[in-house]
Write a protein that binds this DNA or RNA. Structure first.
Lengths: 197, 197
DNA sequence: ACCCACCTACCTGTAGATCGGTAGGTTACG
DNA sequence: CGTAACCTACCGATCTACAGGTAGGTGGGT
């Protein structure tokens, strides 16, 4: 079972890389520190991933696999699933931090994750529009179309993550997200106790 | 007029630093490349800012000064000014990119900009809440309080910036922001041609 | 005469990557 | 069954590059 052992190692490395990137970003991450975390030397790590960039790509691919399976997919989501996704995220600061750090870096010139994020957001917006149309039809609060609301929904999720990462005690991320959904639903009067500060 | 010349140099350096950080983030930025851009050696630059971190701090302080003067202040904004701020930003991708990159990095451990952003966001949210209360009173669309809507407003601005930076042709940032304001205003029916994709 | 602005030279640390091994297991085959 | 050929999973040494920072100047303006 050499093959299995090897796959396991790769998975360990990816998990470690995720951690290190969360702590220092991609540019700040070093192969040595990732290697150390799984009990390898830097050279040992390079046996599995020939370059630093290859490691990053593998991390991103794994992410893609994850959210193309776990509930989503070309047309998989519904609004209440989004809500639980945000709740789920609120319990995994590590993962959120990894991808928020990467997103931030990715807007810089020639960053290896840039195309990944660009394409991903295009797809996410399309997805969101579908979800919204399914839930609200063609016309939602404020007279917006699903296509107009989709980037906003996406933006809220990301923006809240940054605020929450910077100061978790100042922002109730899932609560705030629910607030936004109420805004989308548009009813003037709704109770349900306050969630923010 | 040596003093003036020196101030001018500092301003040049800060401008160059802003550019370089936009291109490579803080961690990826090098003193040498900033220096080069203003026709100095790296050591010449260190004459003005004794460490790399000092340079970053100066950049952040300048930003603070900028948005504590230009229209804002403890109680300065109004919603329509926010709208023009977003329009203004849409014409300065450089600045937006600098601070989006920094925000992304700042969530990593021990980043020198972290406290800056943490405090800044607390203040921004408070500001936003004031603005919203001034505009809408205590109860806005969806039954939200200004304090609940403030983090959302902030998140939308930031989140849209990332989407826009990644693919300006895919997102009409000012248009999308106006859409969000319509959502906040809450009226079910409003015309004004579509803005999104 | 002095000092501000800046440079040359240099040091130290670190990062990614290459090279050449070695130990242990696996397979091919006489 | 045994052994030679080969492969996998690493490690040590080393190369190259560059980064931030220090020390000690020099030269021009006031």
């Amino acid at each position: 079972m050499v093959r299995a052992r090897s796959e396991e190692r790769r998975a360990d490395i990816l998990r470690a890389a995720l951690e290190v990137i969360a702590e220092r970003g991609y540019r700040g991450a070093t192969l040595g520190s990732v290697a150390e975390r799984v009990g390898l030397t830097q050279q040992g790590l390079l046996h599995y991933f020939p370059t630093k960039e290859a490691l990053l790509v593998a991390v991103l691919e794994e992410r893609d696999r994850w959210d193309t399976s776990g509930g989503r997919d070309r047309e998989g989501w519904r609004l209440d699933l989004l809500e639980s996704l945000v709740e789920y995220n609120a319990m995994r600061p590590g993962i959120v931090q990894t991808f928020s750090a990467l997103l931030g870096e990715s807007v810089t010139d020639g960053h290896p994750a840039r195309t990944f994020f660009t394409e991903r957001y295009a797809q996410v917006r399309a997805n969101m529009a579908d979800v919204l149309r399914l839930e609200f039809g063609d016309r939602l609060a404020g007279g917006l179309t699903p296509e107009q609301a989709a980037p906003l929904l996406t933006a809220v999720m990301d923006g809240l993550q940054y605020q929450w990462l910077l100061d978790p005690s100042a922002v109730d991320m899932p609560g705030a997200f629910r607030d936004f959904l109420r805004l989308l639903r548009g009813g003037e009067e709704q109770s349900q106790g306050p969630s923010g500060t």
